[in-house]
Write a protein that binds this DNA or RNA. Sequence first.
DNA 1: GATGAAAGTGTAACCGATTCCACTTTGTTC
DNA 2: GAACAAAGTGGAATCGGTTACACTTTCATC
Lengths: 337, 337
Amino acid sequence: MSKPATIRDVAAAAGISIAVVSRVLNDGSGPVAPATRQRVMKAMEDLSYRPRTAARELKSGPTTTLGLLLADVTNPFFARLADSIVREARSRGVQVILMTTQEDARLEQDALDTLAARRVGGVIATPTSTNVDSWQRLIELGTNIVFVDRYVEGVPHADLVSIDNDRSAREATEHLLDLGHTRIGFISGPLSTTTGRARTEGHLATLAERGVATDPQLLRNIPFRGDQGADATGSLLSLPEPPTAIIVANTAQVAASVRRIRQSSVRVPEDLSLIVFDDNPWTELFTPSLTIMRQPTTLMAAHSVDLALQRIGDDSDPRSVVIEAEFVVRSSTRAVN
Amino acid sequence: MSKPATIRDVAAAAGISIAVVSRVLNDGSGPVAPATRQRVMKAMEDLSYRPRTAARELKSGPTTTLGLLLADVTNPFFARLADSIVREARSRGVQVILMTTQEDARLEQDALDTLAARRVGGVIATPTSTNVDSWQRLIELGTNIVFVDRYVEGVPHADLVSIDNDRSAREATEHLLDLGHTRIGFISGPLSTTTGRARTEGHLATLAERGVATDPQLLRNIPFRGDQGADATGSLLSLPEPPTAIIVANTAQVAASVRRIRQSSVRVPEDLSLIVFDDNPWTELFTPSLTIMRQPTTLMAAHSVDLALQRIGDDSDPRSVVIEAEFVVRSSTRAVN
DNA sequence: GATGAAAGTGTAACCGATTCCACTTTGTTC
DNA sequence: GAACAAAGTGGAATCGGTTACACTTTCATC
């Protein structure tokens, strides 16, 4: 159990200088005699030598490491996203450092500090706070920022990948209006988040365009973290004049919402039509199978990694990739009777 | 957009030497005059200085960074585990590098190489392969290995955290036997994995002890990755003499299995009792709510991080933490008629 | 055989932190 | 006020790589 081999050990074993070993390591960085290369390779093998990433990074600036800053891996949507991003990054030889914020601004700040200290090449994030300063500093350090799903206003130079939130809310709302629903409960994230706001606006705009009265009581903007989805749903159901349909546009609260509905005596879709924003195999297995708005995670992941890596050393304008969400009509929505 | 500040910039700005700045950085590593400390802090603030992790790691050996090597973050069980581990690690100031293997031995090998190059302090992993050499090398480098859920035989010095697989299978099986079932389908992971084997053995042993004949046709050992859960379930249901109960002891295949059952005309629990190994809010929302074997992920995460960090620099014997799984009886199991 | 380009190699300076040790200043005690 | 300990500080080595540059060797060319 001796100390791990260093480049000098390898050089000594191969009877050569460290410069040459380094050249073997970084193929193409200089000429090396074939015979020498052989010897060096063998020495590395014998000593089971691995160059230390820390040393490399120190000398040559941010290597290809991405930070992934997610709110909550427990949310299936984020889990799928994480999986795809790690996969995508790996296929390009890039490593991913995962951090979670639990939707907590302070934790997010910590994470950003860490990422700054690491001098990662890029950060892919679902931001929680309006922590503009920290984001800004990271950018000044030369880090690429790619916001996925949500974004922070006031952070220029950050790329964005998301679904068309406004439009997805419109689509869901129109579907229900077409079925004759006019009292529609709408549960979404906080208005302080871009997704919460865009979806709410899309929903309200559609109602207005169709000349349907909007009742503020039917809107519920609740946090992602925690269990308020159940309460919000419960209070909607117990309104004097309850909605005939509900859209849960808060991915993290779908399970809590559905649980609450199931506990009640309300039948879906007979008494209540239901649309949820989720990408989760179980929505199909629920009885009745749920009509969903699906976010194409694989595509989002590919674009995110693309942007995070592409922009390294690039100074062009921030880019924004908007992806269509996929509306899947199943059995939880039907015409109002 | 000038270069980020270094410790020397801070020293210059504060009119002091870098040694003192370093002492301010690492509180307790030496005396610093209060007034000086003030000035240094201000300088750091002004320059928005962040010490580079790479430089620190280089000098002071493996810092507190953990590698987390999971098979598949898409699997809710692993996602929860990842979430808990990241949380737990973070609360101790440790960062987590996430890598996924997709159950692919070659990808796993790559990941292990990367981890070795990083000289992470410890690795928490759900191993895929019998890649003994790579694991061994990592250990020789002084890395702590903690296997969670599954483990690799032939890797001594590795810690282990898992549920009592044998016992959990027994418990599930006994529950069904108590309800009068004797033809029980059993779907688990490959026999090449420790979980697959232990659960299958527990199941078979229980049958034997109770004097129930075992029909090899009722056993299905299938991969975690892919969609074979559906096929396995389908073929069980279409046996000439189909089982009256099924245990899905392969976490990754639960959703596929359940989907297949739902597509069939078989009613749960009237025609078929069902127990699944899963920890997923949706199992409760399914109709009927599913009887499950829950793996306490938070606890497992805490122990894993504990072990991974504790053993750093420690040379004692490998430790093994076995946690009781929690059997939750809901509505998908009933007495055979 | 002289000549110059290309190939192959080594020396030493970095990257940005930590830390040992020597040095100076300050404070305490008799 | 001498003597000595403690507090405060700085110089320089170090971690393990990369890389610029200088040097030597090889070899084709005239």
